[in-house]
Every structure is written in C-alpha cells, then in structure tokens.
Design a protein around this nucleic acid. Structure first.
Length: 569
DNA sequence: TCGGTCACGTA
DNA sequence: CGTACGTGACCGAG
C-alpha cells in the first residue's frame, strides 16, 4: 500500500481513467483500483504528498476539471525545460534528456506497422528510448501499465532532483534549500497554474463588451453580407478623406504607402508611430489611424473572437504556457495583449471582486539582485529606484530610467548610449554582468539564469561560427542573452510569487485568474478582498526573503481591490 | 497550403 | 541597432 508520507515527499502518480492509479515513491510502487481515480487522488492529497507527474497538461487536467487543487507538485516537463533548456515537454523528450540520449522526433499521428516493427512490449527500448506504443497512451490501458509509467516518472524525478541540487545557488546568502531546487518547485507549480488558468478563465461582462464592440466596429453582424457591408463602410470613412476617393486596399501596406504619397507624405513604412506626427495636420492620416485602431479590434478582438474564446459562462479562456523563451508565461486568446480599452469588460459577476497587483520596477530590481551590484541594490532599497540612480548619474529621472532600460535591452545608439557610459561608472558590477551575458550570446555559449534555467545559446553556435562575431546574427543573439538573464530571472521571481499567493488562497473561493509578466489578477468574494489583498503583499515579501536573501533589494507591489480590470489603482 | 513580412497589442 | 510574446492580413512560392 501507499507508505506513510511526510509533507513534500515525492509520490509519482498516473491516472488511468476508469481503472485507478499507478503510484511510485522512493523504495516502492503500487497500483490502486478505483472507478474514480480523481477522487482517490483528492484523498491521498490530504496526506501531504508532492505529486510527481510527467506534465500537468497531460496528467493533472482531469484533477483541475474536477475541482481538485493540489498543494504541491513536481512537473517533469517543467523541470526538464528548466535544467535542460528544453522546448519540448512530452514524455519522449523528457525521458531522452534524463537518460542523456538524443531527443527523438515527436510522436504524432498513427504509427504504421512498419514503425512498430522491432518494438517489443518493453516500455524502454533496447536503444534506451521510450516505446512509441507507450508514448501514444499505452500507459493508461491497464493498472500495471500505469504503475510502470509512475515508476519511470519517479526515476526521472530523482534524476532531475540530483541535477537541480547540483546547480549553484547564486544568492548572496544561500539558505538551507538551494535556489535552483526552489525554482524547480515554483516552475512546477506554474505549470499546474497554467492548466488552472486555462480551466477557470477570466470573467467578462458581456453587456459591457458588446456595447464596446458595437461602438467601435458596429453591431454584431447577422450575416456574412452584413459583415462585408460594415467593413466596407469603415473603409469608406478613410477613402473619402483622400483625393480621388477611390477604393484602396487599406490592409495592404504597399497600397497605403501609395495612397499617402497622393497627399505628399512619403514614408519608408506605414507604421502608426511613423504616421502619428502627420495626424494633427492631416485629417486623412487621422482617419487612417482611427481606421487601424478599429480594424485591430474588428479582426483580433471583435465578434468572432468573443464568440470563439468567451464561453457560455462568460469567461475568456486561452491556452497557457508556463515558460516560453527566457521563461515568461504565455497565453493565447489575446489574454496577454488585450487592448487597454477592452479591460473595462473584464469584470467578475456581482459579489466577486478583483485584486490587482503589479510589481514595481521589477526588471531593474531583479538586475540589482542577480548581478550582485551593491550600489544598484542600494538604489533598489528605495520605493522609486530611479531617483537614487538619477543622483548617481547626476542626471534627471527620465534620463536615469532610459539609461537603465538601455543597459538591460542592449540599446547602444542615441542619448541612451551616452547615458550608458555613466551607468558603467556608477554600477560597474551590474554592467559587467550584462556585458558578460551578451558575450555568451554573441559566442553562442550556454548561460543559466539566476534560478538555474538553461538558456541554450550553444544550439546557435554553428550558425554564428559561419556568420562571425561581428555579424548581425551575433549582435542579435548578444542582445537576446543580455535581456534574457534579466527577463528570465524576473519571470522566475514572478512565478515564485504567484505560487506563494496560490498557496495562501487554498481553501477559499479566491482564484488567480491572470498572470501578465509582472501583474497578477485574483478573483475573490467581495468580503474576502481585503484579506486577499493583504495576502498578495505578504506573499511578495515572504518570496523576496528567500529569492534574493542578503541582496538588500526591496520588492514592491502596487495592490488594489477593483470591480473591473480597468479601474485605476 | 506554406513561410515570410507587415502591422500592432501587451509587458 | 531595445527585448519578449500572440494574432491576423496579405503576399509570393510551391
């Protein structure tokens, strides 16, 4: 049977729908028959296990759908991404990286008899890779298979844990539990949170949204003909502002450029920021820019978007990723790029509120912490860190801000380039840290973020060798690396914060409903809102106490309780 | 039908 | 010659 568990002990779990569970722990494994494996998981959950699963997406979705919100987990896919810099998180890839094998091609579609020739029933093939039969779902066919799949998951977890614990702890004052290990836990939790976010969705007030859409792009079209007519009407508003007034395809940049030449405006491209200066003097340009704005809403956030991505329960749902690129979370369905005007429509039903919190000046504060620059860390003790930076640079605040951002983003031209020289004098350690990252990128050498995420720049080495160290490609990867060590670390901090908030919300009806790089939205009962707001702030301080212990860097959040997302702080 | 380009929204 | 991402329209190659 299942052994006695102490809180945090790893327990690998595989749910075989309708059959039961496969379980594995250090020292043993078993299977438990049950017609309702989800309920069984909820029961065992009480005993304080840290669930180990191949990936939350594949193996925890049924739990989330049933309302089970596990307390702790180890996500093999998420940790594989972290320690190996992997972009795939399917079992075949995770296993291969664990065993040090070449990552096999993605298993997809039906396997032909030819493909399967020579594949015995063994789960591990003679070449060490996982059987393709098993990868395609054989693990859920029987309780024995589920148990085997759980045993393998546990083997990978133990290997990953060894790797994670061997990574350096880069904090100024390392604690009893290493930072990369803690990062593995919060990355795992982010993976689960991604599934929960996709399941729960973001509350939309239909009447507010419909009114807004009607005002910007016209009423919901009843037919295709009507849709075409409204579209044409929008186009005509622009056409008639130009000499000739003839129909021009406004969606074709080349045609728009020709159109602009008719009124004496010659531009290399037709981007809004380039046309902006002409808008005041030219009603035609103003009309064009207005059209662009409406067209964006109509195509990306219009009636079809609302029908496709907002459920009958008035909740907007996308697919969430827990760590793309340098490690940020991603979301589809426009959740991460919803135009500000539409945010008034993000409003929970009566009796529920939103707690909105965002981290202040997070990237420069993170730079101060991860680079170990004591001068910059001293500045980061202030509520507004650009004030002391401005004093150090003997500049004004806007210049100081531009200088810091330029350093992090790799901008070298313009006034920001000048300010960079002053930054170098005032904060040599931080600048050297960024320059070192850039060098790695330009040479195609692997890097790790503060929390231990592998940034696989060596996979680009071949292309870079051909192009040369001064090539456009080399500089481009240099800028990427310079930014990734800051953006990636900030993403790790954010996820650690989110995981702490989530833990604090356990047992209540409050839910994290949006993660936006440095901003967190929690939906909760109206009466619970003050508690949740306090919890969000405390969670940041407790996270900071281990995430950047000894750095002296202060992390600040701007937190408020609002009826809708657009409400000011 | 595909990948590339333009464009633009968020952080 | 500031980074990251997701989305949609259009283009030209296949």
């Amino acid at each position: 049977m299942i052994p006695d568990l102490r809180r945090g002990d790893p327990l690998a779990v595989v749910l075989a729908p309708g059959l039961g569970l496969g379980l594995a722990w250090p020292g043993g494994s078993t299977s438990v028959a049950s017609s309702d494996p989800v309920a069984l998981v909820a029961e065992v959950e009480e005993r304080g296990a840290r669930w180990v699963w191949w990936s939350a997406r594949e193996h925890a979705s049924s739990l989330v759908a049933a309302g089970v919100r596990p307390r702790a987990c180890w996500d093999l896919g998420a940790v594989s991404r972290l320690v190996h810099g992997a972009w795939r998180e399917d079992e075949g890839a995770v296993w291969a990286l664990h065993r040090g094998l070449e990552v096999p091609p993605e298993a997809e579609g039906e396997l032909s008899l030819l493909d399967l020739a020579g594949e015995a029933d063994d789960v591990v093939r003679p070449d060490g890779q996982l059987s393709r039969e098993w990868l395609r779902g054989s693990w859920s066919r029987s309780l024995d298979a589920a148990q085997t799949w759980a045993r393998l998951a546990l083997e990978v977890q133990q290997g990953q844990e060894r790797l994670v614990r061997a990574l350096p702890d880069r904090r100024r004052e390392p604690g009893p539990t290493s930072l990369p290990y803690l990062t593995a836990l919060s990355e795992s939790m982010a993976s689960l949170l991604a599934v929960e976010l996709g399941h729960d969705g973001l509350a939309i007030d239909r009447s507010v949204l419909d009114e807004l859409l009607a005002a910007t792009v016209g009423p919901r079209p009843a037919s295709e003909a009507e849709e075409i007519a409204t579209r044409r009407a929008r186009d005509e508003q622009v056409w008639r502002e130009f000499p000739g007034g003839d129909p021009v395809d406004l969606r074709n940049p080349a045609n728009v450029r020709d159109l602009l030449r008719r009124i004496g405006i010659d531009v290399p491209d037709t981007r809004s920021w380039r046309l902006e200066p002409y808008a005041e003097a030219s009603p035609a340009v103003a009309a064009l820019l207005r059209w662009r704005k409406a067209e964006r809403i109509a195509t990306t956030y219009g009636w079809s978007w609302s029908e496709r991505d907002i459920g009958d329960d008035d909740r907007l749902r996308g697919v969430w990723g827990a760590s793309e690129g340098a490690g940020r979370m991603t979301a589809s369905a426009g959740l991460h790029n919803l135009p500000a005007e539409l945010r008034v429509a993000v409003r929970p039903p009566a009796g529920r509120m939103l707690v909105r919190a965002d981290l202040g000046q997070i990237e420069p504060r993170v730079l101060a912490a991860v680079s170990g620059d004591t001068g910059l860390a001293a500045a980061a003790r202030e509520p507004d860190m650009y004030a002391p930076v401005a004093a150090a640079l003997r500049s004004d605040r806007p210049t100081a801000k531009v200088a810091v951002l330029a350093a992090m983003y790799g901008q070298t031209s313009g006034p920001a380039g000048e300010a960079l020289k002053d930054m170098e004098r005032a904060y040599p350690v931080a600048i050297a840290f960024l320059r070192d990252a850039e060098e790695h990128g330009r040479r195609g050498e692997d890097l790790r973020t503060y929390g231990g995420r592998l940034l696989r720049l060596s996979s680009l080495a071949e292309a870079l060798a051909d192009a040369g160290p001064e090539s456009h490609a080399a500089h481009s990867y240099g800028r990427f690396a310079r930014n990734a060590v800051v953006q990636g670390a900030a993403a790790e901090l954010f996820k650690a914060w989110a995981a702490t908030v989530r833990a604090g919300l356990a047992g209540s009806t409050a839910r994290i409903v949006l993660c936006l790089h440095d901003e967190l939205l929690v939906e909760c009962d109206e009466a619970d809102a003050p508690r949740v707001a306090g919890l969000v702030d405390e969670a940041l301080q407790s996270t900071a106490s281990w995430w950047c212990s000894g750095s002296g860097v202060r992390l600040v959040s701007d937190t408020s309780v609002v009826r809708c997302w657009a409400d000011a702080h």
